[in-house]
Design a protein around this nucleic acid. Structure first.
Length: 583
RNA sequence: GUGCCCGUAGCUCAGGUGGACAGAGCACGGGGCUCCGGACCCCGGGGUCGCGGGUUCAAGUCCCGCCGGGCACACCA
């Protein structure tokens, strides 16, 4: 709708003044009294035309008034207020009814190759609420991009390398050794020391250790007597879960073996958690593969050739401070190993080489200090500045009975994403994660999420959908037949009431809304639109009967609610929330 | 200490590339179908948009300072 008006304004400018402006706005005014859409063009032209905005607005309004698209075009204090004619709106609404969601599609993306990377949680523990929020934001954006014809790749970067993976192995081994009837005390002491300092203390580690014990018995209690090869084969043979890391990587010692085994189990958990939320990925990208292929090393060499690497204190440093970072960063430690930053640059370079034209990373907000160094590295590689976009997602706080549930891995009061999903369900989780701008912290009230009332926006919106479905069910029941949209569109002309025209507008404006949400990367606005639309519908429904009215009234109203249902369905769908036929 | 984000009604928050009298939900008070789903609807009171300057025809929105809150500042990932 906005585009249409913009075009008309541009045409008018050309005819009246033979001029063009770029950055004028056509927007939905806050006040309905100011029309369906309003524009500020006149203000922007005042200087060039050497006329007061009020006069320009008047001239434009007079000119555009002739257009049948509009019921009225008025100049008010320099603004131009547009009001669509009802005939135009009804014709558009019919088009929408016939074509369904396709009516809202537009070739925004033009097939642009976009990669969205999100979640990418460390495979050393279960997903927590923050990961879930990132997952929902990323997934919803992916759906929106697809809708507008971007060529989207959804990717999960698995941090399966480095010290954390080693610590996972240590932690599993510690929990395993704890329960050994007889064990090598020397080894136990050594492992225990590392564990107590940096180990993962969650229950899930114990579970992995127990699962391991079932497979291999006590054969790892005394590592010097253990036959690593046999143990590994035993695991591969007995374990019912598909093992990737355990199979692919020859372990150098027991801890290494357990690291791989742990990774396999954790990744399985993570995939399951995500699929419970209907979230899936096109690519699962392994950090370790960047080392295997030599990409990390080659990348550092490339940066060396470009003269951005120097040695200090036995380590290799990257001159990120040249490109806006606070200080230079280590890429290769004095012990010869690479830092996470090094592989991360290689990862981004890899994305670039894969031909993505736009890359969007959805990161936890605690990573914001990390952004400048990544951006600096990309500049060194001469990758365009706007190629990488980073969206930060703030943490989620859990509230139960009005009190914050403090999360601490150590205290054991850690609520996982899985637990929340089990308790309140996918729809509520996905919807509520999108009820706030993603860059501000979110308070998640468990009781409200479970409540089936207007306290809970999920139900409010879903209820609108179910109610409309109910109307059509009842129609079929009473009249023993279905109605097709082809029949319904013939009655659209009979929608005359103000509330009905208002609803038609609301429905048709969904397209502008979607475009806006996509370009601004603010999927939370989807929830606000839907709550608003659902509210308008509930209001309408409470004041207007549909079934049993005389033919023109009944069928025109059926057409109207059919359209609303379709928009609610599409909106929920883009958020990955179900649109139930009954509740 | 430095950097980033935030401060809008009693509570939770929209609005933030400046634009027309500041919005919603909840809570609080009062009301609503013999009839399509009451998980709904209607009415009401409620705000110096943290404070102080500045830019502008126009500031909740942009700039500066201050106050209050969050996060980040490793040869961790």
């Amino acid at each position: 709708m906005k585009e249409l008006v913009k075009e008309k304004v541009l045409k008018a400018l050309k005819e009246l003044y033979n001029t063009q402006v770029e950055n004028f706005k056509v927007e939905k005014p806050k006040e309905e009294a100011h029309g369906d859409l309003a524009s500020n063009v006149a203000f922007l032209l005042a200087r060039e035309l050497k006329k007061p905005p009020v006069n320009i607005a008047q001239e434009l309004a007079d000119f555009l008034s002739k257009d049948e698209t509009f019921k009225s075009v008025e100049a008010v204090k320099g603004f131009i207020n547009f009001r669509f004619s009802e005939d135009f709106l009804k014709e558009e609404f019919k088009k929408f009814l016939l074509s369904g969601e396709a009516y809202f599609k537009e070739d925004l993306g033009k097939g642009l190759k976009v990669q969205l990377e999100y979640v990418s949680a460390n495979p050393t523990g279960p997903l927590h609420l923050g990961h879930g929020r990132g997952a929902v934001v990323g997934d919803t954006l992916a759906r929106l991009f697809k809708f507008f014809n971007y060529d989207v790749t959804r990717e999960y970067y698995i941090n399966d390398a480095g010290r954390q993976v080693y610590l996972l192995g240590i932690s599993i081994y510690y929990r395993y050794l704890e329960k050994c009837p007889e064990r090598d005390e020397e080894t136990f002491k050594e492992i225990k020391e590392i564990f107590e300092k940096d180990g993962y203390r969650g229950e899930y580690v114990k579970e992995i250790a127990e699962r391991l014990r079932k497979l291999v018995g006590e054969s790892l209690c005394k590592p010097e007597e253990a036959n690593l090869k046999e143990v590994r084969e035993k695991i591969l043979k007995e374990e019912s879960i598909e093992l990737y890391y355990t199979k692919k990587y020859e372990p150098k010692d027991v801890v290494d073996l357990l690291s791989n085994y742990g990774l396999d189990l954790m990744m399985k958990e993570i995939r399951e958690d995500l699929s419970l939320m209907d979230i899936s990925f096109d690519v699962w990208f392994s950090e370790r593969s960047l080392y295997d292929s030599g990409e990390v090393e080659r990348l550092i060499n490339l940066l060396k050739e470009k003269g951005y690497v120097y040695e200090k204190d036995g380590a290799l440093w990257l001159k990120t401070s040249l490109f806006g970072d606070d200080k230079d960063r280590v890429v290769k430690r004095s012990d010869g190993t690479y830092t996470y930053f090094a592989s991360d640059i290689a990862y981004h370079y890899n994305k670039f080489k894969r031909g993505f034209e736009k890359v969007i990373n959805v990161w936890g907000a605690d990573h914001h200090g990390y952004i400048p160094r990544v951006k600096a590295a990309l500049k060194m590689l001469e990758i365009p500045e706007d190629w990488l976009e980073i969206l930060l997602v703030q943490m989620v706080k859990l509230f139960r009975e009005g009190k914050e549930v403090k999360m601490s891995k150590r205290a054991g009061t850690f609520v996982t994403l899985r637990e929340l999903l089990d308790e309140v369900g996918k729809d509520a989780v996905r919807f509520i994660f999108l009820t706030k701008r993603s860059d501000t912290p979110l308070d998640f009230d468990v009781e409200k999420a479970k409540e089936k009332s207007s306290e809970n926006p999920v139900y409010y919106v879903q209820y609108a959908h179910a109610r409309i479905s109910g109307i059509f069910r009842e129609f079929k029941e009473r009249y023993k037949k279905d109605v097709s949209v082809e029949e319904l569109i013939n009655y659209v002309q009979h929608l005359e009431e103000e509330a009905e025209i208002k609803l038609i507008k609301k429905v048709l404006f969904f397209k502008d809304e979607l475009v806006d949400i996509t370009l601004k990367r603010e999927p939370h606005l989807l929830t606000y639109y839907l709550i608003d639309l659902a509210g308008d519908f509930h209001h309408y429904y409470n004041h207007h009967r549909i079934l049993g009215m005389e033919e023109n009234v009944m069928f025109s109203r059926l057409a109207l609610v059919k359209g609303i249902k379709e928009v609610v369905r599409l909106g929920l769908n883009l958020m990955g929330v179900s649109a139930p036929e009954r509740m």
